[in-house]
Write a protein that binds this DNA or RNA. Structure first.
Length: 1064
RNA sequence: GGGCCCGUAGCUCAGCCAGGUAGAGUACCGGACUUUUAACUAGUAUAGAAAGAAAUCCGGCUGUCUGGGGUUCGAAUCCCCACGGGCCCGCCA
């Protein structure tokens, strides 16, 4: 990968002074350096704590776009932070070849699909010759694999590439076989049937990219209820989504203009169904034999028996019945289905003479569901709307509401769905049914189960978005796949185990844990094998390929093995690798040849005189040395597994919670002992573009590598993370990216100029930290007010950043490191310049700034590794910044609170003065008078502050405070009078304190008596500069000072921290 | 249909869990800046003025916290309802 780069740093010449920074050179230089110095490699090191972190590996069917980068970048920042904290971090990456889309794409390339090829050419910028090679599916995977990997390297991800693998590598497949055999033995893999979208022409399941117009076939479950023809052994099945309405059926509807089929189903029953229903039933695994074709009209006026109520009901003609839905015959529930009601009305219009055996007027709707129709009833009252029991007929209300005229009215759909929703959520069954007062949502399931149990119905699947056509042009159906293999995530014991695992895991952000619990709740059987695609064969049933979400749940183990495949030729022993190998590594079980291994890795010697051949338990003969070296390797791998496992952190997008992440927990929970369960999951939201999810079909993707070329990796890393906190879905923004680009440039330039002006001092400072010289330079009395403040702020910021990192509030950490620290430094500059006219001069000055800059670049380094490494080396360090340590927090450095308060105070005064100047708009001001508040006021201030700090939950309104103050001073009349004299002051002070953050209150409280005079005096030069008033024209008085100049009697308005101000 | 999330400055997002202070970045505006001095004002070191703005710096600006109701002395924050936007539920990964 890096063969083209040299390690000679001069070659890159990134320290030159041209105004544009050569990010590409900087990036190449450090990528090369990290690679040469193996910075990202991780091996067993018992002297360090390990930290094993992974991200979901990519599926290589397209280049990475900015959206993918977020999860990876977060993980990388997390990894780099832990590395700086002194952990031995393992951050590996693999590639997921398992699945079908690559095969589909390859087929489309073979078929010269224009859309796809244009996409490759124009969006992904792939050469025609490469596209041509895509007729071979593996070439697609390999191409994008390389593409994605290059992108990851260019982004500076600290991945240990020695552990790379793909999911179709031979030993990986053995690993997956082991996983499935083990799961099978644990009894959580079962066989059953499963509905899928199906192309009869290809004989394959179809999903979105297999269909014309990229339609995802979706289907619902109907209940097909069988009505027996009176006096005949013939059944008329009808499909319904509302089985509970069986109690309200008055008749069946048949289309008398269409032909139906008489068929024998499953060699057993005779049914009358539409032609399309016959076909659908065949795909749904029913054996259909056609006997004859019959016209629908032949059944008109026949009677059928309701299988539940046993009532005899007639079959009547209706034109709204379509042959493509259900069986082509429907049951009529006029009271609750507007279609049925309208058809009934239409029939009644035909008149009695139309029928021989039936008087349609005798057909009365049967209301079986009560729901709140009050609003509608009020608007449309009419006698027609009552049934025989004087109950309101819901469907008729909706017919009126939509002004329906006949059964072909398009508004009937609307009326139907509205009534459906109303009754489903608010309706209850009435007393005509055995389910009186039960909610529909519950009854529906019960009736369905009852019907299925009594064999009066079957489940019937129907596409909801039909017609769906395969790319080959054939019409698609719902097919029931037989003998489908499932992972039974519904298994109670398994679920319990998974829940236990979840509970002891650290889920970040914690509020997302509820989402996991929900998923665990409804998770049931999950198909785990397919007929097509790349992947591993199901070990006991080689017709099936293990499905992609099932072979990617515990693969983190494999990163440990992959290193030995890539660097120790483990593949040479592939014939020795079977379940016993994984049993040994993961469980420490010794089967087969592993019985020859002792616990310390040495061998149990063969009997004397044995040859160099050995025989394992399967009676296979091996060369002894060959076996020994395999066992040696296995022992090494086992040691490494024990060192790195369990997994410490797993990063993923939140869209994977319902599947991958949940399966990940389930599989770990059952396959690993509790002490090896994963410890943490970190979930992040996705990156949107213009409010929409990035996707190829939307054409709103930004290829990652292109963006790196333009803005550099660091800018993109920062932009991705600063956009929003973890869980938030963020909108990508180029203006922010550009802003960050210039920000990083600014940082770079400042470090450069600082170095150039002070290079000899800086070099002498290289090893100063923790030395006696450092202590000497930081002697309290040597430091100015602003120096102390800067060091305090530095300390506090590092503490904030560290704390944010620990909670993985990455954005907060970044914001502090990138922006807030800069703000502090700006203030420092202003103070310095105003006092001395320069930023640095003495060694001490340089040292303070050097301290700030050095620590800052460290806290920035997880976010911008390239910039940080560059500047780290600029300052003369000749090791990698990532082999260094995270800046420590100096708890008792100096009087932190006081330093902060001082500068805060100065800044507040400056703001106040500016505001007053602005309001008065008086430019002729020449003198500034400041009055500091009296002892009495200060005393009261602390008393009130004490109440706030100590009694967090008490009422803090004015009355309460007064009461408390007075009651606490009940013996002391002097204090009492002070309190009474200063009620206005107290009220204002309460407001002052309320407007402080809790931290600020705490700080002021901890400082105790605050001397306002000191910071004022120290900042006179600053105030003078900023206000453009000579320093000698500032006058500071105590409120009660005798020789006070107070022409406007302002002094009495002074309050602690808020001196009274008068401008002349 | 089920589950989840979001709605705060023009834009992208913090703040909400633990109620009292609305805050960052970006955009925008002004100034510093550069050029010109032909015309205008003072007057010749120049300033105003006019024009230009790549970067940088300084200063400034912006809010019915989606709406309604409730709890509270006090609500962006807690509770309820409504509205608007998004995500996930596949033999996709």
């Amino acid at each position: 990968m890096f063969a083209n780069f040299s390690t000679d740093p001069d070659k890159y010449n990134t320290f030159n002074k041209s105004s544009e920074i050569k990010w590409d050179l900087i990036e190449k230089k450090w990528l090369d350096y990290w690679d040469k110095n193996k910075i990202n490699n991780s091996d067993i090191d018992y002297s360090k704590k390990k930290f094993f972190i992974t991200v979901a590996y990519p599926y290589p069917n397209s280049p990475q776009h900015i959206g993918h980068g977020r999860t990876y970048t977060l993980a990388d920042v997390h990894a780099r932070y832990y590395k700086l904290k002194g952990f031995n971090v393992l951050f590996p990456m693999g590639f997921h070849y398992t699945g079908t889309p690559i095969l589909g794409m390859s087929k489309r390339v073979q078929g010269k699909d224009k859309d796809l090829i244009d996409n490759f050419k124009n969006i992904f910028l792939i050469d025609q010759s490469i596209i041509d090679s895509f007729v071979e599916p593996l070439n697609i995977a390999k191409y994008f694999h390389n593409e994605i990997k290059s992108g990851m390297i260019e982004m500076g991800y600290s991945i240990d590439w020695r552990r790379e693998f793909t999911t179709i590598d031979s030993i990986y497949k053995k690993f997956i076989s082991w996983q499935f055999k083990t799961l099978f033995e644990l009894g959580v893999i079962e066989q059953g049937s499963h509905p899928v979208g199906w192309c009869p022409n290809d004989g394959n399941p179809v999903s979105q990219h297999d269909t014309l117009g990229d339609i995802e076939p979706s289907f619902t479950e109907y209940v097909l209820i069988k009505f027996k023809l009176k006096n005949e052994h013939v059944f008329i099945p009808v499909a319904t989504l509302r089985p509970e309405t069986i109690f309200g059926v008055t008749n069946l509807w048949i289309n008398s203009n269409e032909n139906y089929l008489k068929v024998i189903v499953n060699n057993n029953e005779t049914w009358i169904i539409s032609k399309s229903a016959a076909k659908k039933l065949e795909f749904q695994n029913h054996d259909i034999k056609i006997i004859s074709e019959v016209n629908g009209s032949e059944f008109v006026e026949s009677f059928v028996e309701n299988p539940i109520t046993n009532l005899l009901i007639p079959i009547l003609p209706a034109s709204f019945v379509t042959m493509d839905d259900g069986s082509g015959i429907v049951m009529s529930v006029p009271a609750h289905a507007p279609f049925d009601m309208q058809a009934l009305i239409d029939i009644k219009k035909l008149g009695n003479h139309f029928f021989k055996a039936i008087n349609p007027n005798e057909l009365q709707p049967i209301t079986i569901i009560n729901s709140n129709l009050d609003k509608l009833k009020f608007e449309f009252s009419d006698t027609d709307m009552l049934d025989a029991n004087q109950q309101i007929i819901p469907s008729s209300i909706f017919l009126k509401k939509y002004f329906i005229i006949d059964q072909n009215d398009p508004n009937l759909e609307k009326a139907t769905s509205e009534l459906y929703t109303l009754e489903f959520y608010e309706g209850v069954m009435n007393s005509r049914t055995p389910y009186s007062d039960m909610p529909i949502s519950k009854v529906r399931e019960e009736v369905k189960q009852m019907l299925l149990k009594s064999k009066n119905s079957i489940i019937f699947y129907e596409l909801t978005n039909k017609p769906v056509y395969c790319r080959c042009g054939a019409l698609c159906f719902v097919k029931i796949l037989n003998n489908q293999w499932f992972l039974n995530y519904g298994n109670e014991k398994w679920k319990e185990l998974a829940l236990k695992c979840l509970r002891q895991m650290d889920i970040i952000p914690s509020e997302i844990i509820g989402e996991f619990e929900n998923v665990f709740d409804w998770l049931k059987e999950r198909a785990c094998a397919r007929k097509t695609g790349l992947g591993t064969l199901l070990p006991w049933d080689k017709d099936w390929i293990i499905e992609s979400l099932s072979d990617s749940v515990i693969y983190m183990v494999y990163y440990i093995i992959a290193k030995y495949v890539n660097t120790n030729n483990l593949e040479n022993y592939v014939n020795l690798i079977d379940e016993s190998f994984f049993d040994y590594i993961i469980y420490g079980k010794k089967n087969k040849s592993f019985t020859k291994l002792k616990d310390d890795g040495s061998f149990i010697l063969e009997e004397e005189g044995s040859s160099s051949k050995t025989i394992d338990n399967d009676n296979k003969v091996f060369d002894m040395n060959y076996l020994k070296s395999f066992l040696n390797l296995s022992f090494e791998i086992k040691k490494e597994f024990e060192y790195y496992y369990p997994l410490d952190s797993r990063h993923s997008g939140r869209d994977l919670i319902p599947n991958h992440l949940s399966f990940f927990i389930f599989n770990h929970a059952i396959l690993f002992p509790q002490n090896l369960w994963p410890r943490q999951i970190v979930v992040n939201g996705s990156v949107l573009m213009d409010g929409k999810k990035m996707s190829k079909s939307m054409g709103n993707i930004i290829p990652l590598r292109k963006a790196i070329q333009q803005y550099g990796a660091d800018s993109i890393r920062v932009a991705m993370l600063v956009l929003g906190e973890l869980l938030q879905d963020v909108d990508f923004s180029f203006s922010i990216l550009k802003g960050i680009y210039t920000k990083l440039k600014e940082i770079y330039n400042f470090y450069m100029s600082f170095y150039k002006n002070n290079n000899s001092i800086i070099e002498s400072l290289l090893n100063i930290f923790n030395s006696s010289e450092e202590k000497l330079l930081l002697e309290n009395e040597n430091l100015n007010m602003e120096d102390k403040w800067l060091l305090t702020r530095l300390n506090n910021n590092i503490s904030t950043i560290t704390f944010s990192f620990e909670k993985l509030k990455i954005r907060e950490a970044l914001n502090t490191a990138l922006y807030l620290m800069d703000k502090d430094f700006e203030w420092y500059k202003r103070r310095k310049f105003s006092k001395y006219g320069h930023l640095y001069q003495t060694k001490k000055d340089v040292f303070i700034i050097y301290t700030f800059l050095t620590k800052r670049i460290k806290v920035l380094s997880p976010f911008c590794p390239f910039l940080s490494e560059e500047l780290w080396h600029l300052f003369g360090n000749n090791n990698s910044i990532f082999t260094n340590t995270w800046p420590s927090i100096d708890k008792n450095q100096i009087q932190d609170s006081l330093n902060e308060e001082n500068e805060q105070y100065i800044s507040n005064i400056l703001n106040d003065l500016n505001k007053i100047l602005k309001i008065t708009k008086n430019t002729s001001i020449s003198k500034v008078f400041l009055y500091l508040s009296s002892e009495e006021k200060n005393y009261l201030y602390w008393e009130i502050l004490r109440l706030f700090v100590n009694n967090q939950n008490k009422n803090k309104n004015f009355g309460e405070i007064m009461k408390t103050l007075l009651s606490e001073s009940n013996q002391d009349d002097k204090i009492k009078s002070i309190i009474k004299k200063n009620t206005v002051f107290i009220k204002k002070t309460i407001d002052d304190i309320l407007s402080l953050s809790p931290a600020e209150r705490e700080r002021r409280y901890n400082i105790g008596k605050f001397d306002e005079f000191k910071p004022l005096l120290d900042s006179i030069t600053l105030l003078s500069d900023e206000l453009k008033i000579p320093a000698e024209n500032f006058y500071i008085y105590g409120e009660n000072q005798k020789e006070i100049m107070d022409p406007n009697k302002k002094a009495k308005f002074s309050r602690p921290f808020k001196p009274a101000i008068f401008l002349e």
